[in-house]
Design a protein around this nucleic acid. Structure first.
Length: 486
RNA sequence: GGCCCCAUCGUCUAGCGGCCUAGGACAUCACCCUUUCAAGGUGAAGAUCACGGGUUCGAAUCCCGUUGGGGUCACCA
């Protein structure tokens, strides 16, 4: 009988939540939910220089935004609290003392400068073990100099450390390559490797699912598990995410923080769907999966071994799929902040209008930002008419009178429906003896200022009588002065 | 550079010894639809399964080497 699955996501609040970290959190969460296990959120805030309360809050908000709820962690009552490493200092000290009494660690009085210098001189990365066999007199002398020691782990000089990774299989490292690494800094704060091992053990973590960049840390952790006589968890190293140029996903080359994607108008459902498909695939050919479907089909053996390139185009496609498939009510609610961001008052239009707008515009945009942008002409005056469109669609002699006539006819249209508006245009084009398109394009330009838009009768209806009449009038005036100038 | 990991269409991937003259999706292209732009529908192009050796009756699938890519080498996590 297997133990209850307990996994954890252990972010450091040293920046905004990175999409790579988020993907790690997602896989952990999916695995926990799939197996009816527990998802634990542990804050690794031992980097006191870079950790901030603001980053912590931002990361927690991102997790909540995406719906990755944690069973134990900040803001919960878990039986393994506290979940902030800086609040667990006595615990780490206890285990460091234990290792000290077992002669598995030692005090090191070297200063960062000395270490740096030694590294440069020997051109090798590891620590020499200089302080491992200090005499009592030497220790006294170093203490008198006011030095604060850190604690280093005594790495075995030979042999190899082998562990089994759920994805990679058996992985082994030569012990002589591992140096005496630091487990407790001189300020009494544990280092990552030590704190993670102590906490994962105490919190009864069964599967450590984390990014591939931690694979080379694992032998040190395995050594610590052995030294403290803890049973190690299962290790699951998931592939990292790459930029299009196959370098590690980084700023400079595009958005990397979850927050940025939210601001760009991506829906959480789409993000969740897309991110889960980076380095993992369901057994069947489905591409669009809801949160529940993801949980249902998630399994560790579906995770790939190789890194995955972040395909922005596919994300856009998935987002587009969700814009058209999510309940309109949901899209309306989420769209409003973007309307506001674009500089308009979302309260100007009522719910019915939004529903129509989304049914008309929804399938031609990829993000909420694009949706808000294309709807902006219904909130604010248009800045200019597309120059190419002007030359093409405003050039004919009948345009000025036609725009005035349409202004008159639409203003007198009591019904003001998509059908009645279509009738006005078609009837008038027949009267003029021109094709409907010859009227449609100028009207499109008059309302939106552009040559591309959804079907024009829908756009006219969406504009509303007042705005439509105004735009037709302004366009007529514009063409008058344009013709006069040329 | 040392160590570790990885390698199927441009990209995400299916494939876990015969069903593969390699399947799906995004992107690309064409056609249909059409008042423009999309969406949608149909179809096309796109991978000598990185390369070279083995093992086997048979390999994208197993083994070895080469090359390429990535990760990591802190009193950061």
């Amino acid at each position: 009988m297997e133990h209850e699955v307990r996994v954890r996501f252990a972010p450091s609040p040293t920046g905004l939540l990175h999409v790579g970290s988020f993907r790690t959190a997602l896989f952990n969460w999916l695995f926990a939910r799939k197996n009816n296990g527990k998802f634990i959120l542990r804050i690794e805030d031992t980097d006191q220089k870079r950790s901030t309360k603001e980053f912590l809050e931002s990361q927690l908000e991102d997790m909540k935004w995406m719906g990755l709820d944690w069973d134990e962690g900040p803001e919960t009552v878990g039986c393994h609290s506290p979940y902030f490493q800086m609040q667990r200092l006595e615990t780490y000290k206890k285990y460091a003392d234990k290792l000290m009494s077992m002669d598995k660690v030692y005090l090191c009085y070297c200063t960062p400068d000395e270490l740096k210098q030694a590294r440069e001189e020997t051109k090798s990365a590891g620590y020499s073990g200089k302080c491992r066999n200090l005499t009592p007199q030497q220790v006294e002398k170093l203490k008198d100099e006011g030095r604060k020691p850190c604690i280093r782990f005594i790495s075995p000089p030979r042999g190899e450390t082998v562990f089994c990774d759920q994805i990679k299989g058996e992985v082994s490292f030569e012990n002589n390559l591992l140096d005496d690494f630091v487990i407790m800094k001189s300020n009494g704060v544990p280092t990552y490797n030590f704190a993670a091992v102590v906490d994962d053990h105490l919190m009864e973590i069964t599967h450590v699912i984390r990014g591939d960049e931690h694979l080379s840390n694992t032998p040190r952790q395995v050594l610590l598990y052995q030294a403290m006589e803890f049973e190690p968890p299962r290790f699951v190293h998931i592939p990292i995410i790459l930029n299009e140029d196959r370098t590690k996903l980084s700023k400079r080359k595009g958005a990397v923080h979850l927050l940025e994607f939210e601001q760009k108008g991506f829906l959480k459902e789409a993000m969740l769907n897309f991110m889960s498909l980076l380095g993992w695939a369901p057994k069947d050919d489905r591409e669009i999966l809801s949160k529940n479907e993801l949980i249902e089909s998630f399994s560790l053996d579906g995770i790939t071994k190789h890194p995955a390139v972040f395909d922005y185009k596919k994300l856009e496609w998935i987002n587009g799929q969700y814009i058209t498939s999510l309940p309109t009510k949901t899209i309306v609610e989420r769209l409003k902040p973007f309307i506001e961001e674009a500089g308009a008052d979302p309260g100007e239009k009522d719910f019915t209008w939004y529903v129509e707008a989304i049914s008309v515009y929804g399938n031609r945009v990829k993000t909420l930002v694009e949706l808000a942008d294309s709807l902006l002409c219904f909130f604010r005056d248009i800045d200019e008419y597309d120059p190419k469109g002007v030359k093409k669609h405003f050039k004919h002699d009948y345009i000025i009178s036609a725009l005035y006539e349409l202004e008159k006819r639409t203003s007198e249209d009591e019904e003001f429906s998509v059908e009645s508006l279509e009738k006005i245009i078609r009837d008038y084009s027949e009267e003029l003896g021109v094709s409907a398109g010859k009227l449609i394009q100028p009207v499109r330009l008059a309302i939106t200022g552009t040559t591309a838009s959804p079907p024009i009768f829908d756009v006219m209806k969406l504009a509303g009588k007042e705005l439509l009449v105004d735009r037709l009038h302004k366009a007529a005036k514009f063409v008058e002065s344009w013709k006069a100038d040329s």
